[in-house]
Structures are given as structure tokens and as C-alpha cells.
Design a protein around this nucleic acid. Structure first.
Lengths: 114, 114
DNA sequence: ATTATAGTTAACCATATAGTTAAATATATA
DNA sequence: TATATATTTAACTATATGGTTAACTATAAT
């Protein structure tokens, strides 16, 4: 009835996003790849806490890490957000008019072609 | 620095979505408006638990309720999912090619017009 | 008036979450 | 080698979450 793999994945992703700190981290990473300490700067919390937040983002596959010496560099991962977009698209007609508008335009343009 | 109103709102929405039961409820509601007991059918849990889940969805403004006699009818609310789509759109280039594809098509079509 | 139905609320429990501080690990620098 | 830096891990705490059962409220049906 339900796909529990995909289900658990979505749980992890949505849960990771349900926190302002982690969303802010994602925002930072959308600007530039950053180290753990760089990610920590805007937040009034211990590095240990920051470390945990990053782990939550990693578990959700929203963030990837590459270690070079003692420095851990984090970057956004495309894949995971795609999954939630896919989920959202199922309920598109309930909230978004953006596609409709685009598709309408496209249709009009196509019509003119012929 | 951060908009805490919108922030709390996003927290509530993402949190509401981070649970398979609640996502399944949203799916059901995308098919048809349903009562609390109808929503409860597929789930192996008490009505009290179902009631709580619905409340979480309501707090996130994902679901609205209208009471008629003793029956509570629930329906999807467009607004909230729009907010998360808006958030996602900020990071669009990191995950979604859908708009690109659509827009490319549109451009091609427009070009042919002239 | 009694009973059945639809749903909520309260009290409780186990586990998860988000934070802390302190100690540990690993690497770079003096 | 000794020390400083980058980060994780462990142990702990307070609160939130997701579930339970039992009692309650409100409405409908007999």
C-alpha cells in the first residue's frame, strides 16, 4: 500500500527541513560550499549542536560532506530536494498555479505554431 | 535576519509533512473531502491518535475542518503547500530541472513563432 | 429517555529531539 | 614534540512526539 523505503526517505527529508537552523544552513550552502565551523557562525549554539544538525541534513541526503585533513566541507545535494518536489507535484493542483500558467503559455505558443 | 513568523509557519508545515500517516491523510484528502472516521480507516491506530494527526495538519494550515452536527469534515488547504513550494523555489537550481525543461520548450516555441 | 455514533480531551508512557558540557580524535603548526 | 585547530562523540537534560486507554461532549436515532 505504501512504499516504506521512499516513505522513510521523505520522513527524513521533511523532518530535516522542519527546523529553522537547518533551513538556514541549506540557504548558506546554496550560496557556497562551507565547512562545519563556517556553518556554525550565524548560530548561537555549540559546535556539537551544529554537528548534529549537519548530520540530520546528511541522513536526509540533503547535504554531502568531503573531508580534507581536519576540515569537513559540506555542500547541497540535488537529489533529495527533487524527491520532495516530486511528492509535492502529486498535489500540484491544490496549491500551485505556476505550472498551469507556464503550460498555458506553452500551449498558446504551440497553437500559434500551426 | 530571519522572518520568525514565516519561519514558525514553515516549521509547522514541514513537521506536519514529516510523517507517513499525515502524508497519507493528505493524499486521501486530495482525492476527496473526508470525515475524521473516514480518514482513520486505513490506519491501525486509535481515533484519538488520528484526531491528533489531523490537529497537526490543521496547525500547519494544511487542512481545514467544517463541523456539521457531530461530523467533522476535513479538506486540503491550498495556501500552506504554496508556502513550501515558494521556499523550495529559492533553491530550484539545486534540484529541479522541471521548470528548465518547460521554459526551454516555451522558448523554442516562441522562437518558432517569429 | 436511552442508546449509539462522531469526535475530543486528559493522563499517561516510551522514544526522539535539540540542546548542553566535557572528553576524545585527528590533523596542522610552532 | 607540544600545542592549537577542526570536528565528533558521549553522557546528560528538558521538552516534544506519537501512541495508548478511559472518560467526556455533542449530536442522532430508537
Amino acid at each position: 500500500m505504501v512504499n516504506y523505503n521512499n516513505d522513510e526517505e521523505l520522513n527524513a527529508i521533511f523532518h530535516a527541513l522542519a527546523d529553522s537552523t537547518r533551513r538556514e544552513m541549506i540557504h548558506m550552502l546554496s550560496q557556497k560550499e562551507s565547512t562545519v565551523s563556517e556553518l556554525a557562525v550565524p548560530f548561537d549554539m555549540s559546535l556539537a549542536a551544529v554537528s548534529k544538525h549537519i548530520k540530520v541534513l546528511e541522513r536526509a541526503n540533503l547535504v554531502e560532506r568531503s573531508v580534507k585533513g581536519r576540515v569537513h566541507s559540506c555542500r547541497l545535494n540535488a537529489g533529495s530536494l527533487e524527491k520532495i518536489t516530486a511528492w509535492l507535484n502529486m498535489y500540484e493542483r491544490f496549491w500551485s498555479k505556476r505550472f498551469d500558467v507556464l503550460e498555458e503559455e506553452l500551449l498558446k505558443a504551440k497553437k500559434k505554431e500551426h
